[in-house]
């Protein structure tokens, strides 16, 4: 019995690793296509045309081969162990967050638990903890590179990530208060019975999504790498697959953040008028739930990519002002107000 459980978990891990890595390859293509559209270009359209495939569907293969076959330069003046460790930290911390993310229905009477570690009662705390480790990849890369640009990039990013972790953590507390649990399945169940998180916690959603941009180093907040000032920032000295691993880690982070957004604020697998409940467990219902959650995640990712070509980069003092002077106070107000309302409702309503 336990052996089969173990084998099932290993299969789930392999599938999720494979699927997410493949998704990342195609997300890069999607991003390039969106970038081209935003800039009135055509974008990649050749790879795959030889085999009759439309829209450069083989471009990810070409990109991957390029990353693997390029010369892997390790400069003489770097601190070698840390220089090699940093990209691994970036990719591993981005990967292990998926351990507690539910990809579909999870529960005792479901067909399969769509989660590697089902029903972890502190799932969200785990995601936050793992996410806070990601900064080590960046700061170590910057320090070990022994290069001014890389070093400044690393310092900038550590300050930025520490600052935005606070509103990120505080903005979800309101939602957790409402749902009364750190378990993501319970949060989805609460939303399917009451209302989507974005409706009951609009301020929390905006704060969370904004800090998520900062945590993933996406464009309005991409000061750690800003090409124009820092020649690429912390990964200036990295080449070939080591650079590719940073890239991969960044996109994996985007997927994780989108999943958390969908689960916390967009109702998870819930859609109004479909009549799905946490208990419904037929084959069609299960497929519907998985389809809805991945569809919503894809929408969130598209939204994140769209923002990139809409907003210019912040100046550094503006970035810090935004976090400390407006987002953290707003998150505190949101938390206190939610706690007060929850207490009033629980006292006088039922």
């Amino acid at each position: 019995m336990t052996l089969w459980v173990l084998i099932g978990i290993v299969i789930k891990i392999l599938m999720i690793v494979g699927i997410t890595q493949g998704t990342v390859a195609y997300l890069i293509l999607v991003e390039r296509k969106i970038a081209a559209y935003a800039q009135d270009r055509i974008g990649p359209n050749r790879c795959g045309a030889q085999f009759g495939l439309p829209a450069a569907l083989l471009q990810p293969l070409a990109d991957g081969a390029k990353m693997l076959l390029k010369e892997d330069v390790v400069p003489k003046y770097v601190t070698k162990p840390l220089y090699i460790l940093a990209p691994w930290i970036a990719i591993v911390t981005a990967m292990i967050g998926f351990a507690v993310v539910p990809f579909g229905p999870v529960g005792p009477n479901q067909l399969i638990d769509f989660q590697i570690a089902p029903n972890v009662d502190m799932g969200l705390l785990y995601v936050l903890a793992v996410g806070s480790l990601a900064v080590y990849g960046v700061i170590l890369a910057g320090w070990a590179s022994n290069n001014k640009y890389a070093f400044i990039g690393g310092l900038r990013s550590s300050a930025q990530l520490i600052s935005y972790e606070l509103p990120l953590g505080m903005s979800i507390l309101g939602m957790l208060l409402l749902a009364g649990s750190l378990d993501m399945n319970q949060v989805i169940a609460w939303q399917s019975q009451n209302a989507w998180g974005v409706l009951v916690q609009p301020l929390g959603f905006i704060l969370f999504f904004t800090s998520a941009f900062a945590e993933t180093n996406r464009l309005p907040f991409d000061l750690p790498e800003s090409e124009q000032e820092l020649v690429g920032g912390f990964h200036t000295e990295y080449s070939a697959m080591k650079f590719g691993m940073f890239f991969l880690g960044e996109y994996l982070h985007i997927i994780t953040v989108s999943f958390i957004t969908v689960i916390l604020f967009w109702g998870g697998w819930h859609l109004p008028f479909l009549g799905l409940t946490p208990e419904s467990s037929g084959l069609i219902d299960t497929l519907l739930k998985v389809g809805i959650i991945t569809g919503k995640v894809f929408l969130a990712i598209l939204f994140i990519m769209w923002i990139r070509w809409t907003l210019p980069r912040f100046r550094y003092d503006q970035l810090m002002d935004l976090a400390w002077k407006s987002m953290i106070p707003l998150a505190l107000i949101n938390l206190v107000a939610t706690a007060g309302i929850v207490q009033l409702v629980r006292t006088y309503w039922n």
């Binding site: 502190m122 705390l125 903890a129 480790l133 900064v135 700061i139 070093f151 520490i162």
Partner: peptide, 26 residues
């Protein structure tokens, strides 16, 4: 004590040690 483990990683590794390194590098 998984909760304590998560808090340990979140606070000590994710914040305290990073601030330490930040302080050294500045």
């Amino acid at each position: 004590a998984e909760f304590l483990a998560a808090v340990q990683v979140l606070i000590y590794i994710g914040a305290v040690a990073i601030l330490l390194m930040f302080g050294i590098m500045l």
